[in-house]
C-alpha cells in the first residue's frame, strides 16, 4: 500500500533523536520540518500547516502538553506524542489534551513509522469512509448495525455497538478510558473503568478468534484501548 507523501512537523529538543526521526520520515518520502522547542514548534505548525505533528512531551521551554493544546485550538491535524517509558499519566494527559497517539521512548523507527501511517490514514478517512470494520473472521457494519462472524450473525447490544463505533472512529489509534466512558456512558461515568473491562471482554468473546489473545481489540495497559482492524 503506497501512502501519500505528507508534511510532518517534528518538535523535539534532543538533536540526535530529531535527526533519526527526520531521516526516517524523509526516507519514507515525507517532507519534514524540525523545531527544537515548543515556541518554535507552535510557529512552525502555523507556517508549514503540516499534515501531522510529532511532539516530544519533555520540551525545554514550555510543556509539550501546552503545545498540543495550542495546536488543537485551531487545527485537527493528527498529533503523535513521544513520551518516556512508564509515564502512563503523561500519556493520558497528552491524549486528553488532544494528541491522537503516542510512541514510547526508546522506540524503533519501525514502530514510529507504523504510528505515522495510521495517523495519516486517520486524517484521510475523517472526511467519510467505510463504516465496515473487519476483524479476522468478524465483520461489523456500523451504519447498518449488523455484526457477523464467519458469516453467521452475531448479536451486539446497543452499548457494544457504541463502544465499537467510538473505537472504530479512531481505528489504529489509542482511545483513553476517559474518552470511551464519557462518550458511551456519559461524563458521570468517566472513571468507571470496570465498565470497559466488562464490555471489552464481551466484545472480544463475540468477535475475536481467541478472546484471551486478541488481535484487534487491544488493551493499552493503564491508558485505554486500540482497535486494529484488518486493512
Amino acid at each position: 500500500m503506497t501512502e501519500p507523501r505528507a508534511t510532518i512537523l517534528v518538535v523535539e529538543d534532543d538533536p540526535d533523536i530529531r535527526r533519526f526521526v527526520a531521516a526516517a520520515l524523509r526516507a519514507e518520502g515525507h517532507q519534514v520540518a524540525e523545531s527544537a522547542d515548543a515556541r518554535r514548534g507552535g510557529i512552525d505548525a502555523g507556517t508549514h500547516k503540516p499534515d501531522l505533528a510529532i511532539v516530544d512531551l519533555g520540551l525545554p521551554d514550555f510543556d509539550g502538553l501546552e503545545l498540543i493544546r495550542r495546536i488543537r485550538a485551531w487545527s485537527t491535524m493528527p498529533i503523535l506524542v513521544l513520551s518516556a517509558r512508564s509515564l502512563e499519566r503523561a500519556k493520558i494527559d497528552a491524549l486528553d489534551a488532544g494528541a491522537d497517539d503516542y510512541v514510547t521512548k526508546p522506540f524503533g523507527v519501525g514502530e514510529l513509522l507504523a504510528r505515522v501511517r495510521v495517523a495519516l490514514r486517520h486524517r484521510a478517512r475523517t472526511a467519510g469512509g467505510g463504516s465496515v470494520v473487519r476483524m479476522g473472521a468478524a465483520e461489523v457494519d456500523l451504519a447498518r448495525r449488523v455484526a457477523t462472524r464467519e458469516g453467521r450473525p452475531v448479536h451486539l447490544t446497543p452499548i457494544e455497538f457504541r463502544l465499537l463505533e467510538c473505537l472504530a472512529r479512531h481505528a489504529g489509534l489509542v482511545v483513553t478510558h476517559r474518552a470511551l466512558l464519557t462518550e458511551v456512558w456519559g461524563p458521570t461515568h468517566a472513571s468507571d473503568t470496570h465498565y470497559l473491562r466488562i464490555y471489552l471482554k464481551q466484545l472480544r468473546d463475540k468477535l475475536e478468534d481467541d478472546p484471551v489473545r486478541p488481535r484487534h481489540l487491544l488493551t493499552e495497559t493503564g491508558v485505554g484501548y486500540r482497535l486494529v482492524p484488518d486493512e
Binding site: 502512563e88 473503568t193 470496570h194 473491562r197 471482554k201 484471551v212 489473545r213 486478541p214 488493551t219
Partner: peptide
C-alpha cells in the same frame, strides 16, 4: 499504586502480545 479495576485475562493478553 494507581489502582483501578483490571482484568487479568486482559493483562495476560497484552503481555503475551
Amino acid at each position: 499504586l494507581e489502582r483501578d479495576w483490571a482484568s487479568l485475562a486482559e493483562i495476560a493478553g497484552t503481555v503475551l502480545r
